[in-house]
């Protein structure tokens, strides 16, 4: 209980400071620290799998992205800041919004509205023997597929922003000393941990996104140290790595439509191997997509 109060207070204070500080780099670091504490908060909320996602994607690669952006963008104001009067109005509006959200959360009917029964009731209709697998494939399946496609779309959007004639992200500044050493030692360990997280995720939702984020981070680390080159945008192997997951997933979905009469439905007894068949390419695609998002758009070759 003290732990919760401490955590919540620290998160609030840090978040407030992040919003108010003028130094963009400092705000980025503040955001990462907030994310770290939020991961602990999710543990206290009883959801370790969300905590894993927050640690890997929210604070982890997301934080790195924002800190990088801060050094590139700086704190140039694009427009005039709101006048004191407007500012007061905005603050009042936001306070009202916070009070409304808080009231809504605190006056929830008990028990809170939930989908536990609906999820259970829908299971027999899926024609699957194993309810856990059914939830994973039917309730979470479409979600997961669309999530992977969103990552793919974001990569395409990023590439669309590249200037004419740009073929690959600009190489990082040259580094010597400890960084190349770290980039040689850490990735093998990171890959093992990533695979462990994906494997452990078979019992809970979403192991491949967290694992994919770690894989992406390890590859970006090697790139930062100058050990690997960013791939050409037109590289065919890269294209296949990006679409392999969604394609296999769609293929299995259509096969379910033909064989079991429902999109993404699986014939009983085949669920486990088919899920592994889907997860492996999906992890690869997600890792490749997240890594490319982290690198940013291609820049014109010098």
């Amino acid at each position: 209980m003290i732990l919760d109060a401490l955590l919540a207070l620290a998160i609030l204070a840090l978040a407030a400071w992040t919003v108010w500080t003028r130094d963009a780099f400092a705000a980025g670091i503040g955001f990462v620290a907030t994310g770290l504490l939020l991961a602990l908060a999710w543990v206290r909320l009883g959801s370790v799998d969300v905590a894993l996602t927050e640690a890997a994607i929210g604070a982890g690669i997301g934080g790195v992205l924002l800190v990088n952006a801060a050094t590139h963008l700086g704190t140039t104001a694009e427009e005039a800041p709101p006048s004191p009067r407007q500012n007061r109005l905005i603050a009042l509006l936001c306070a009202g919004f916070a009070v409304a959200v808080g009231t809504a959360l605190l006056t929830l009917p008990d028990p809170a509205p939930n989908l536990v029964h609906e999820a259970a009731a829908a299971l027999p209709a899926t024609g699957l023997g194993n309810p856990v697998t059914a939830v994973l494939m039917v309730w979470r399946g479409l979600d997961t597929l669309l999530e992977a496609i969103v990552v793919l779309l974001a990569v395409l959007g990023l590439w669309a922003l590249a200037p004419e004639g740009a073929t690959r992200p600009a190489p990082p500044p040259r580094e010597e000393g400890p960084l190349p050493l770290l980039a040689r030692v850490l990735p093998p360990i990171g890959v093992v941990i990533a695979l462990h997280i994906v494997w452990a995720g078979a019992d809970g939702p979403g192991g491949k996104f967290q694992g994919g984020a770690i894989l992406a981070a390890m590859w970006v680390l090697a790139w930062m140290a100058g050990l690997v080159r960013a791939p050409e945008v037109m590289d065919r192997r890269l294209a296949w790595a990006l679409v392999a997951g969604p394609l296999v997933f769609l293929g299995v979905g259509v096969a379910g439509l033909v064989l079991a009469g429902e999109f993404l439905a699986l014939p009983a007894g085949w669920a486990k191997p088919v899920i592994l068949l889907i997860e492996a390419p999906l992890t690869l695609s997600i890792a490749a997509g997240l890594a490319l998002l982290l690198l940013g758009p291609p820049e014109r070759a010098p």
Partner: peptide, 27 residues
């Protein structure tokens, strides 16, 4: 909300949301 009912569906949505938020932020 999820913690009150022990409901897995909102948690799954949050995981989706975090990934989508990252993708949107990069863009």
């Amino acid at each position: 909300v999820a913690a009150r009912a022990g409901d897995p569906v909102p948690r799954a949505l949050v995981i989706t949301g975090l990934v989508v938020a990252f993708a949107a932020t990069t863009l």
